[in-house]
Simulated assay, not measured.
Amino acid sequence: MKIRRWTCRLALGLAALVATLFAIVLPVAYAWNPPGSNDRASYLDRIDSRYADTELARFHYTMTGQGSPVVLIAGGGLWQYSWREVIPVLARQHTVYAVDLPSQGYTELKRPGFTFDLPAMGEAIGTFLDAVDLKHAALVGHSWGGAWSLYFAEQHPERVDRLTLLDSPGLEAEKAPVTPLFQTPLLGELVTKLTTRDFYADSIRGTFQHKQLVTEEMIDQLWPQFSDPDNRDGFLALWRNLDYRLTDAGLAKVSAPTLVLWGGADEWLPANQAERLAARIPNATATVLPGCGHTVHEDCPAETIPLIENFLR
């Protein structure tokens, strides 16, 4: 009898503790929004920022060089700063557009209820192309930016001249190891909102094999845009809404010559996805760069950028 009473008291105590924790955690996860950084990326002073106003968003972009159009789309949690070494090389022969899509950089989303899934991000690419009067262009996308570009190329093959995918998910296959963390209700909100500058810096280092390249100056350029509350919300929504069954099912629809580049030391997505992805896309080739991480164009620019340049040429 005493044991039964003690068990009941313990259960009631644990229930009270759980209720108290939920009372504390729920407002943090769902009601509280941490303020964004007051810092300003100094990279903005080195570029000619342009804006394209549409019903969907006010797109922040740059346009550099002259020649056939190439549109660069950065990965999740990044912005066009990620292309700083790529732009001047490609601009020798192309008009290079580096654009921030919704959840990235300094683009302002206008449309309420934007779903942050593959169809929505594909629409965003098309909306931007229309806004800058591009009927077609070559697309270069990294990571999520590559997945969005791939989906757009599947749905609108007539608008994509060439397609370059850098460590880009597109198969219904292995996901990034942190995926369950962000996809779990409550936990995903907590992790996203409680991410500090240091934690964000560690995450960026995890996408590089050459860790020394992730400098304080780099984080100074990346952190302010990621810390923006709207960008954080979009970032979390993308973790939950991107469904690669859609891209996997449409791979045969891609008509553009396609180059798949992958870091052989990618810790986010296994490099064996490169050959598997290229094998499913008509007129595609895959190159795996040994000793390079997920952000392959920044981790190994000397190896990666000439491959992109030669392919687009």
Rank of each mutant, 00 (worst) to 15 (best):
K2L: 03
R9L: 13
L10H: 00
A15P: 00
A16C: 13
V18L: 14
V25P: 00
V25R: 00
W32N: 00
N33D: 13
R40Q: 11
R40K: 14
D45I: 07
D45F: 06
R46A: 12
R46M: 07
A52D: 10
E55N: 10
L56F: 04
R58I: 06
R58W: 08
R58M: 00
Y61K: 03
M63V: 15
T64K: 08
G65L: 04
G67D: 10
G77V: 01
W79C: 01
R84Q: 14
E85M: 04
I87L: 08
P88N: 11
P88W: 14
P88C: 12
R92N: 01
Q93A: 14
V99T: 04
P102R: 12
P102W: 09
G105Y: 11
T107Q: 09
E108S: 11
G113S: 11
D117E: 08
A120W: 13
G122Q: 06
E123I: 07
A124G: 05
G126N: 10
D130K: 15
V132P: 08
V132F: 13
D133Q: 14
K135T: 15
A138K: 07
A138Q: 09
L139M: 11
G141M: 08
G146D: 06
A147S: 15
F152T: 02
P157C: 10
V160S: 05
V160E: 01
R162N: 08
L163E: 07
S168H: 09
P169D: 06
G170N: 09
L171W: 11
E172D: 15
E174L: 10
T179G: 00
Q183R: 14
P185R: 04
L187H: 09
G188W: 09
E189C: 00
L190C: 05
V191F: 01
T192W: 02
T192F: 02
L194Q: 13
R197P: 03
F199V: 10
F199D: 10
A201F: 05
S203W: 12
T207L: 07
T207F: 04
H210K: 14
H210N: 13
L213V: 08
E216N: 14
D220I: 02
L222Q: 05
W223P: 00
F226I: 11
S227C: 06
D228I: 03
D228V: 13
D230I: 07
R232H: 13
G234V: 06
L236R: 05
L236Q: 07
L246F: 10
L251D: 09
V254L: 04
A256D: 08
A256T: 08
T258F: 08
W268T: 12
A271E: 13
N272Q: 12
R276H: 12
A279R: 14
A279F: 09
R280C: 09
I281Q: 00
T287D: 12
T287P: 03
C292H: 06
G293Q: 01
T295K: 03
T295N: 13
V296F: 05
I305L: 12
I305W: 03
L307D: 04
L307W: 02
L312M: 12
L312Y: 10
